[in-house]
Structures are given as C-alpha cells and as structure tokens.
Simulated scan of single mutants.
Amino acid sequence: MILSESDIGERIASGNLVITPYSKDSQQPASYDLRSAEDYLLSKGECTLVASMERVELPCDVAATLMCRSSFGRRGVLIGGGFVDPGFRGQLTLCLVNVGPEDITLPAGERVVQIIMHEVKTGAREYEGRYQDSNGAVSCR
C-alpha cells in the first residue's frame, strides 16, 4: 500500500516517520517532493550526485521508491538507484542523469524527485548498509 498525504502526516506527527525540513508545498497526494540541498548543474550526458535537502528516517514498516518529477523527466533527467530500504536514516543521494539536449541548472530548494512511501508487511529488518546516516551527496563506497 502506498502511503497517502494523510498517512504521511499522521506518521510525521507521531514521530514514526521523519522528513526534515518538511515543507507543506512539497507534500503531494501520495508522495513527497524532495528538494535539492544546494545549487547543481546537471550537465548533458553526465550523472550528477545531488543531495536531498531533507533528512529522511524511515521506520521498519516503510520502504520508498524515488522517481524524478515529471517536469524534469520531460527535459531528459533520469534517476538511478531509486529504492530506499526500511530503517534508512540520512540525506538521500539522488543519482540524476541528464540525457536531454542541454545542461540544466538545479537551484537549491528546487523540488526534483518524488519519494513514494510503501507500507511493508511484518518481518522486514532495518537497513544497516554503508549509506546509513548519510550527510550530503555520497559517492560509491
């Protein structure tokens, strides 16, 4: 089940989900728009690692899928590595590839990627990988 706007709001209010800094303008009916932490240039033909402004803490019963907002997809921006395991904590590194015909300026605070949260049935273990508690854009470890 995909979490709705009200599900996300209830979980944030109860402390069962963290998205900080939270912006009401980024809340969508069944997703949340992650913003760029700083200014980036998405050069055509290149992969750029972009840090989300938001720090996310998923509980053990929530996983997430990352997708480019359609306004960026229409310009040729694709995202790689679009899954977040239950229990992940930290800023998300968004692997954005510009296959469009021109460079794209991505200013700090721009809504660029949707995080779609899914309820996970019982029995999931918490993420303990090498990107736990990430700060900023983190390259391959």
Rank of each mutant, 00 (worst) to 15 (best):
G73W: 14
G73Q: 11
G73E: 09
G73I: 13
R74V: 02
R74Q: 13
R75Q: 14
R75T: 13
R75L: 15
G76D: 14
G76Y: 11
V77Y: 03
V77F: 08
L78S: 12
L78R: 05
L78F: 13
I79S: 09
I79R: 10
I79T: 08
G80Y: 02
G80K: 09
G81M: 03
G81N: 00
G82N: 01
F83R: 01
V84M: 02
V84A: 03
V84K: 00
V84I: 15
D85C: 05
D85Y: 06
D85N: 14
P86F: 04
P86G: 13
P86Y: 05
G87W: 13
G87N: 08
G87K: 10
G87D: 12
F88H: 01
F88A: 00
F88V: 00
R89L: 01
R89M: 00
R89T: 10
G90T: 11
Q91M: 12
Q91C: 05
L92I: 14
L92D: 02
L92Q: 03
L92G: 06
T93I: 03
T93R: 10
T93E: 09
T93H: 08
T93Q: 07
T93Y: 09
L94Q: 06
L94S: 04
C95T: 08
C95L: 11
C95I: 13
C95H: 09
L96W: 02
V97R: 11
V97P: 01
V97A: 06
V97L: 11
V97Y: 12
V97D: 04
V99E: 07
V99I: 14
G100A: 03
G100W: 05
P101L: 10
P101N: 10
P101C: 04
E102I: 08
D103M: 04
D103F: 07
D103L: 05
I104H: 02
I104C: 01
I104A: 00
T105R: 12
L106E: 06
L106C: 05
L106Q: 03
P107M: 07
P107A: 11
P107G: 07
A108V: 07
A108G: 12
A108M: 10
A108H: 04
G109E: 06
G109P: 13
G109D: 07
G109M: 04
G109L: 03
E110A: 15
E110D: 10
R111S: 04
R111F: 03
R111P: 08
R111N: 01
V112M: 00
Q114I: 11
Q114E: 11
Q114N: 11
Q114D: 07
I115D: 06
I116V: 15
I116H: 08
I116Y: 04
I116G: 05
I116A: 01
M117C: 14
M117R: 08
H118L: 15
H118N: 15
H118G: 07
E119G: 14
E119R: 15
E119H: 15
E119F: 12
E119D: 04
E119Q: 12
V120I: 15
V120M: 15
V120W: 13
K121T: 15
K121D: 15
K121Q: 15
K121C: 13
K121E: 15
K121A: 15
T122W: 14
